[in-house]
Amino acid sequence: MLNSQRIFVEAISKYGAEHGIAVEIRAAGWLIVMQRGGTRHLAFGYDLGLNSAVAHRIANDKSATADVLTMSGVPCVPHALFLDPELNAYVPTQGSWQAMLTLLSQNPAGIAVKPNEGTSGKSVFLVSSAPGLELAVNRIFASHASLAISPYLEIEEEVRVVLLDDIPLLVYSKKRPSVIGDGKRSLLELALATLPADQRSAVLPEMFAELDRNALDAVVPEGARRVLNWRHNLESGARPLLLEHGEARDACVALAVRAAQAIGIRFASIDIVRVEGGWQVLEINSGVMTEALSKLHPELVHAAYRAALDKVFA
């Protein structure tokens, strides 16, 4: 999808037409200039400019976010920061490798190794061995200056809360693609038979990258459920599902508000995960990306961006 075709660009263009605001799309849709009279506002990526520079930088840094939330008493998934050895002037004298191995040994279920900055679940690795850790670290440092390591958690549910000045605009869960066994077909056969066509390009490459041939060919017992991706990322095939009003939604919104207040962010999407029955913050995104949800509920997405733009032009 071209940047200029994003729902974010469409929503801003529509808002401009309705409110007498000139909208100019630059940099292939990545930079948007909004002008009304002598007032000009800029949007970049998925950022409307409502957040301070510090809040934006902290939200974009997984380790910094976890540090601030922990200091503020907000339950969150810990993320340990490691810098590329090329930045040797800033790396501890004892280096980082032993500390990484220690984290691996402390988490027998595995660790998640990911770029410290960035979204969409790109270059995120589930690691359970020293060779796997070395491979993940080398791949990430090939294109990123830092990485973060968090414990692998058996996430029961992941919920995204889009907040604007502590008011929830969108609340939805991310449902990972899965299959139910029939005692006859393999995991791969079930995936090919049941995955909708529009999900295959996102789900199948992840399956082939993460599972060996034996796992793909193994027959799934009748009635057994198998998730096809350990990640909850929408870009990896998870489906957004609006969360009904109730105890779970209230808990997620309350925790998201605490997290937003802790780092001083106004407009953000906050990912909350349920682990062993308790909720904790996974990460905060200062750019509000809603492409997957917009395919199912475009009117809600337009309303969310409209509310944020009202704040921009207030």
Rank of each mutant, 00 (worst) to 15 (best):
E247D: 13
Y152G: 11
I263F: 08
P131T: 11
S294Q: 14
L234P: 15
G181I: 00
V275A: 06
Q94W: 07
G277A: 03
D310A: 09
R231F: 01
G118W: 05
N285Y: 07
I140N: 02
A197G: 11
L300W: 08
F82E: 08
A215E: 11
H79T: 07
F141N: 13
E18D: 13
I167E: 10
A80T: 13
V159T: 13
V113D: 11
R274D: 03
L169S: 14
S72A: 02
R40S: 07
Q280I: 03
N229I: 03
W230G: 04
S143G: 05
K122P: 11
V281G: 12
S236N: 09
A262W: 03
K114D: 01
F82W: 06
E158T: 06
G264D: 08
V301T: 13
I7W: 10
S286V: 03
L216E: 10
P151W: 01
P177V: 00
V281C: 05
E235L: 02
G118D: 09
K122L: 01
P177F: 00
R266E: 12
F267Q: 14
Y90H: 12
S63K: 10
W279S: 09
L282H: 13
G121D: 07
E156I: 00
V23W: 12
V219R: 15
R57L: 04
A43P: 14
E24S: 06
I58W: 04
P78E: 01
L42S: 15
K184W: 00
L187R: 15
V257R: 12
D84M: 07
Q106K: 11
E157L: 06
M289C: 09
Q94G: 12
P168D: 04
A209M: 04
G264P: 01
K295H: 08
V227N: 09
K14H: 09
L228R: 14
H245Y: 06
W230F: 01
F125K: 14
Q35G: 07
C76S: 09
A304N: 05
M100C: 06
L48Q: 13
A224Y: 01
D84V: 02
E206C: 03
A112Q: 11
T65P: 13
H19M: 09
L296F: 09
R6E: 07
W30Y: 05
G183F: 00
R26V: 09
I270Y: 06
L211Q: 11
Q199V: 02
M71W: 09
D84E: 04
L133E: 12
R57S: 08
A59Y: 08
A191C: 04
